[in-house]
């Protein structure tokens, strides 16, 4: 049975692994940028590779779900060949289990390899990532601010979670195929459900699987990252950079009593003076911040610290692998009871 499963799968496997090999070669040739240097300032080519790497690691599981998962059973149903396969001396449970195991393993390996290559390539950038602040934006020579690896755009493209995504997307495709019995429809549903599950996990699960840390941070000229001024001249929005490498979930300004407030209206003009003044005072005045902190205004930040990266990775991978196991069980059950 393994022979048949491989014989049917090898074309698709070679297509994906071929592309994967090309990508890995490109990453190895370009090499990780600025090895050892603490500051990440990328050339435009490196910047493209960095972003493409993130997109590819996110894209691969979807591709696996659509092109490996969905057609796995529907192709047999549409061509009628299931009637040939199921009448050899192999039960359909073993038939499906073998196909799931072989292709699932290939999916996990492909995602693991790609993630490994991209994580290695971007290692120095991830290490150098630091929160974006106004000081960075103002100073021309500062480092580019890259998202930390624990925060959303990067987290899913590093470490071991892509393996969980890929296995899940694959089994999801198979399950959709068994239920819908039509390849194209199953492909579309696989993509929609996979994206929906990833978004749901990002917003509803990942921030809460480990209770978030909270810290109060003084507002300083060095860490202020955002200041929005409302039409009436008051402060609409004020943010500071969270702890280095952290994923900031929420931030609010609190007063001396610890109550959530908006910063006093004078902060806006004080921190960001009108243009003609700011030319004479290029740096925000320290007095404002001293006054703010003297009055007890601080920033209360809720965040997932950088140190939890691997814990969060492990938990999320486990979640996706558990979902995959559940779907596998359903697939085998449905193949016995609902098909053809």
């Amino acid at each position: 049975m393994i022979w048949l499963a491989w014989r049917q799968f090898r074309g698709q496997a070679m297509a994906v692994y071929g592309l994967l090999a090309v990508l890995v070669v490109i990453l190895v040739i370009t090499g990780p940028p600025l090895p050892g240097s603490g500051v990440a300032r990328l050339t435009s080519a490196e910047d493209k590779v960095y972003n493409a790497g993130i997109m590819l690691v996110y894209g691969l599981p979807a591709i696996i779900g659509i092109f490996w998962g969905a057609p796995l059973v529907t192709r047999e149903l549409e061509a009628g060949t299931y009637r040939l396969a199921w009448n050899q001396t192999v039960t359909r449970t073993r038939w499906l289990a073998t196909k799931l195991a072989l292709t699932g393993l290939a999916a996990a390996t492909a995602a693991g390899l790609l993630s490994l290559a991209v994580t290695w390539w971007a290692g120095s950038i991830d290490a150098a990532s630091q929160p974006s602040t106004l000081a960075h934006v103002v100073s021309v020579t500062g480092a580019d601010a890259f998202a930390s690896r624990v925060s959303p755009p990067v987290f899913g493209a590093r470490g071991i979670v892509p393996v969980g995504y890929a296995v899940f997307a694959f089994v999801l495709g198979v399950a959709a195929g068994i239920l819908l019995r039509r390849t194209v429809l199953a492909m579309a549903v696989t993509l929609a459900v996979f994206v929906a599950v990833q978004v749901a996990v990002l917003f509803a699960v990942r921030p809460y699987v480990i209770p978030a840390a909270q810290d109060t941070i003084p507002i300083t000229s060095a860490n202020i990252s955002k200041l929005g001024v409302s039409g009436s001249g008051g402060v609409a929005e004020l943010a500071v950079a969270g702890p280095r490498g952290a994923w900031v979930l929420a931030a609010e300004t609190v007063d001396a009593a610890g109550q959530a407030v908006t910063a006093p209206p004078w902060t806006a003009t004080c921190v960001m003076p009108p243009r003609q003044v700011s030319e004479t005072h290029p740096v925000p005045s320290q007095e404002c911040f001293a006054k703010l902190s003297a009055l007890g205004y601080r920033q209360l930040v809720t965040y997932q610290p950088a140190s939890r990266f691997w814990a969060l990775q492990g938990i999320e991978t486990a979640i996706f692998l558990t979902l995959s196991a559940l779907l596998t069980w359903l697939c085998i059950r449905w193949t016995r009871t609902r098909l053809p």
Partner: peptide
Amino acid sequence: AQDTPTYARLTVSDHLRLGARL
């Protein structure tokens, strides 16, 4: 089965190997 299904992409000898393996 009706319409005698076979795997279109597999060769004749692949089918024999399929039978032998399964």
